[in-house]
Amino acid sequence: MTASSIDRRHLVRTAAGVAVGGVLVAGSGVAAASADEHAGLIGSWWLEHSDDAPAPPSPGIAIVSMAPGGVIVANDIRPAGVVRNGSWSGDADHFRAILWAPLAPPTGGADPGSTRVQIQGRLSGGVMVGTAAITGYSPDGTQIFSGTGTFRGTRLRA
């Protein structure tokens, strides 16, 4: 297993979480979601995600939170990972998001590089599903890997 394959899996896991968390409900959907915290995509989601072939599936779980105004935050919890932040847009049923995070937790003050996760998804019957494209960059901005994955999420209720 290479460092790039480990990083790629981490990115795909993050991407899935980000996708769910980055949804912005546009137009009247935003007003409805703001009025009812359980409406649309706004809120927190339990997201299960995995890599697409040729990578091993490497399933994971993330918590993704989507807020009015287009803010999305995703955190891999199984296995544990970095927190990703970004923005999302869409309507009551479909969305897209972009998230950024360090490639790995910084050690000794060294820049580990970064990851970008681009997500597309939809909400159907209370279940969020979609795809993610993950790209890893070295500290100088050179692309070092890319991959794709899928996710499925359910609303996280208090």
Rank of each mutant, 00 (worst) to 15 (best):
G69D: 13
I63C: 08
I72M: 12
S50I: 01
W88C: 04
A80G: 05
P68Q: 12
V64T: 13
G69F: 09
A80Y: 00
S65I: 13
H49Y: 00
I63Y: 11
P57H: 02
R78S: 15
P56T: 13
D93H: 15
V82D: 12
N85K: 11
E48H: 05
V64E: 10
P57G: 02
N85W: 14
D76W: 01
D91W: 04
G60A: 05
G81L: 09
P56C: 00
A74F: 01
P54F: 06
M66G: 15
V82A: 15
D52L: 09
W46H: 05
R78Q: 11
R84N: 12
I77P: 15
H49Q: 09
P54R: 08
V82E: 15
G90V: 09
P79G: 07
G69K: 12
G60K: 05
V83I: 15
P57S: 12
S89T: 09
G70E: 07
G69Q: 14
D52V: 00
P79L: 03
G90H: 04
I77C: 14
V83A: 07
G86L: 04
A55C: 02
A67V: 08
V83W: 05
P54A: 11
A74R: 05
P59F: 02
P54D: 08
L47N: 14
A55H: 11
G70P: 08
I63M: 11
A53E: 09
D51C: 08
I63V: 15
S58D: 06
P59H: 02
I63A: 06
L47C: 13
G86A: 03
P79H: 06
A67Q: 15
P59D: 07
A55K: 02
A80P: 05
I72D: 06
S65Y: 05
W46G: 01
N85S: 13
S50D: 08
D51L: 05
